[in-house]
């Protein structure tokens, strides 16, 4: 449960840091009126939906951290046999990273109205294989479409990964390592799927109503969600590779011995 406590310390630390700015030491019984409220009332300079997403991501983070914790505790029991990850997960990782980068590009453009792809730095443009000759609306909707395609490809890739390991004999109930692989990747895929449904809607809006005011905020939220899920995915792979295990631990043990 150490991992959970570390995560929790992060969340609580952030909350306490925020609380610190809420004039917790003020004496409300002495302070009447409106004009001595220094920082105003609304305490976080973010939109409601963005704040909502951030809190939601904290909950999702907690969920995955608890699974990681369970993974660490369970792998200490001797029947644990680590499972080789199928090579396709590396391709999937690149797909998800690419989706994240495309979405970020869409966000950068959406933030600057009337700018087109030329606003992106040349390196960024080369990264996403696009030239700067499209108008802003067109490039946003295309970038969103590419993100959808890449993410769908990621999900298909994950399905291929399950098929591969199942064909290799690593079935769900075979060993707890396999069980964790299926449950963790499955849960992650479910979260991606949920985000993808929202992103499909956003993409549809960008094609049909490119002037919609909601577009920027929706892209903003999607981008945050995608980056977060990519981050979770990376940690997940590290955990499943058993990085707390052999080489590192052995090295430490040798150093101590």
């Amino acid at each position: 449960m150490t991992v959970v406590l570390i995560f929790l310390m992060g969340v609580l630390g952030t909350s306490l840091w925020w609380l610190k700015h809420q004039s917790l030491t003020s004496k409300p019984w002495l302070e009447t009126g409106l004009d001595n409220i220094e920082n105003g009332t609304a305490s976080v300079g973010l939109s409601k939906s963005k704040m909502g997403l951030i809190v939601f991501l904290a909950v999702v983070g907690m969920l995955f951290t608890l699974f990681f914790s369970g993974h660490f505790m369970r792998q200490e029991i001797e029947d644990w046999r680590s499972m080789p990850l199928p090579p396709v997960v590396w391709i999937n990782g690149i797909l998800l990273l690419a989706a994240s980068i495309y979405l970020q590009a869409a966000l950068i453009i959406a933030r600057k109205q009337n700018r087109d792809l030329s606003y992106l730095s040349p390196i960024y443009r080369r990264l996403i294989f696009l030239r700067g000759d499209e108008s802003s609306d067109a490039s946003i909707k295309h970038l969103l479409l590419y993100t959808c395609v890449l993410t769908t490809a990621f999900l298909i890739g994950q399905f291929v990964a399950w098929k591969t390991v199942a064909n290799d004999g690593f079935v769900l109930s075979g060993n707890p390592a396999n069980s964790f692989f299926y449950v963790l990747t499955g849960l992650h895929a479910l979260h991606i799927l949920g985000g993808l449904i929202a992103l499909f809607q956003t993409t549809a809006i960008s094609w049909n109503y490119p002037e919609s005011e909601k577009l920027l905020s929706r892209i903003d939220l999607s981008a945050l969600y995608w980056h977060f899920l990519f981050f979770i995915w990376c940690i997940m792979i590290f955990v499943m590779l058993g990085w707390t295990y052999d080489p590192l631990i052995e090295l430490c043990q040798r150093v101590i011995a």
Partner: peptide, 24 residues
């Protein structure tokens, strides 16, 4: 509950009326 909980938290954080500081 998570759906409701997000509402309760964000309403307290972002939905307060003018003058309603956390310490009020």
């Amino acid at each position: 509950f998570t759906m409701g909980g997000l509402n309760y938290v964000i309403t307290v954080l972002q939905g307060r009326t003018r003058g309603m500081t956390m310490m009020r």
